[in-house]
Write a protein that binds this DNA or RNA. Structure first.
Lengths: 243, 243
DNA sequence: CGGGGTATTGATTAACATCAAGGATCGTGG
DNA sequence: CCACGATCCTTGATGTTAATCAATACCCCG
């Protein structure tokens, strides 16, 4: 079984992503070397490693994270379908963070060595690659602003909104609900909060009737109020390229 | 006066930066449309704007920052010679943060519209552009880890070390000293600390004999101990491309 | 039934923000 | 030449947020 060919890729057809030309489609089918299915808990890319493979997430969720010398873990970002993994290793030579699968995941696999081929023969796809890097940079900048300037309640509200938006954009929402199988510890590690405080803050948001999060489902009951609390604008998802 | 032509660009010759081929050099001389000198305090790029110009910093320092709805400012990163400004606007259409000149600055100017030309005709330069984006992404990830997991003392130690390393890499150090005309408020806004606490923490580091920072000069008196305190490895600067 | 992982809760403590002044330096206009 | 603001740095006192510590509860699974 050849798995999802690019042609029938369900992700690609989402409105969120820019269209492929016929030529691009063919090229991507060539660029793609296979599909990978990994169990929850698997480390997909490891900090310091020089993986020969790059990935696009087709299904499932994960975390990008760094581990500090004292053993503390910082989750840099959550990983959702449509995300491209391994660009750093592909370009700079080694990963600067690790990526773990939180749920079972399906990944589209590319050869690192073919990256140069992308730049040489398909400039529009190379441009998209840079686009993806720029989008990630933007998101990390927003994260920095959250960690630096928002208090615990605002941080959590902000994070849940952004998570919802990202999942919603790839068609994983049902009303105000999205599946979310991360632990509270993951969120805490992403926001620089302790587990205990994260828990209490989530309780508070729940008590306010703004959210529910249990059994792997996040429910933003009052997105508007939550956004106000978090001091964020609900963003209309911007079209972006998919690798 | 045509200003610094790429050919004699003093930055380019630094060991830090990867070499230009003769063809690349010619191309860059074409890509470059001029030079810009701005006063301290000038806003070079504004959040939400769609600047027709992109820049490489030749001289001077600045800050990338976001302003939140409540008026708080988060400095995302400091800007030093060799940095490329405006990639987000160039690729995604608009800047997601602002950039101010802290000192007088000299900038190399490019036309945003020519970016596509880079990808189409000079894939190796396009690759470098992506490299630059990946490096920035890496640094922002490290910043997130600092804000999330380090306490005030460690954060400041970390920041001063990274600042020193970056300036050192572009040849601006004299022994353990580098020029640094930022205010304590800038550092505080970069690290998510209050001005008062930043000040007191700097005092403490000074009292320990680890640093000095006055009259626009930062002096890392004991880099080794400072690095230990910050829980960072002193990094040998990795070669990287210059735009 | 026991054990590992996760969520929850209350009590205590430490880190940092906030508030409030004061001092140093510098440029400007009277 | 001096007074005035303006800007930045410094310091002490007080308040609040969130970390840490320590249990307990829950659930699924073997």
């Amino acid at each position: 079984m050849p798995g999802t060919t690019c042609k029938i890729c369900p992700l690609r057809k989402r409105e969120l992503f820019t269209d492929f030309t016929k030529d691009e489609l063919e090229f991507m089918a060539w660029f793609k070397t296979g599909e990978l299915r990994v169990d929850a808990g698997t480390t997909i890319l490891m900090e310091g490693s020089n993986s020969p493979q790059l990935f696009t997430v087709l299904e499932g969720m994960g975390t990008r994270y760094k581990t500090l010398e004292n053993g503390k873990r910082q989750v840099i970002n959550f990983v959702f379908p449509g995300d491209f993994l391994g660009l750093q290793a592909g370009i700079m030579g080694e990963m600067k963070h690790s990526i773990d699968a939180t749920t079972e995941m399906t990944l589209c696999v590319f050869r690192r060595n073919d990256i140069w081929e992308v730049f040489k023969t398909h400039p529009e796809r190379a441009y998209d690659l840079t686009w993806i890097a720029a989008v990630e940079e933007h998101f990390l900048g927003e994260t920095i602003a959250s960690l630096g300037q928002r208090d615990a309640t605002q941080r959590i509200a902000w994070a849940l909104i952004r998570i919802f938006e990202r999942l919603d954009a790839v068609g994983m929402s049902t009303g105000h609900k999205v599946p979310l199988h991360f632990r509270q510890q993951d969120l805490a590690d992403a926001l620089g909060l302790s587990l205990v405080h994260t828990n209490k803050t989530l309780q508070a948001l729940r008590a306010m009737g703004l959210i529910e999060w249990q059994d792997g489902t996040l429910n933003l009951k009052k997105p508007q109020e939550l956004a106000e609390l978090a001091m964020v604008d609900l963003e209309r998802p911007q079209k972006r390229p998919l690798m």
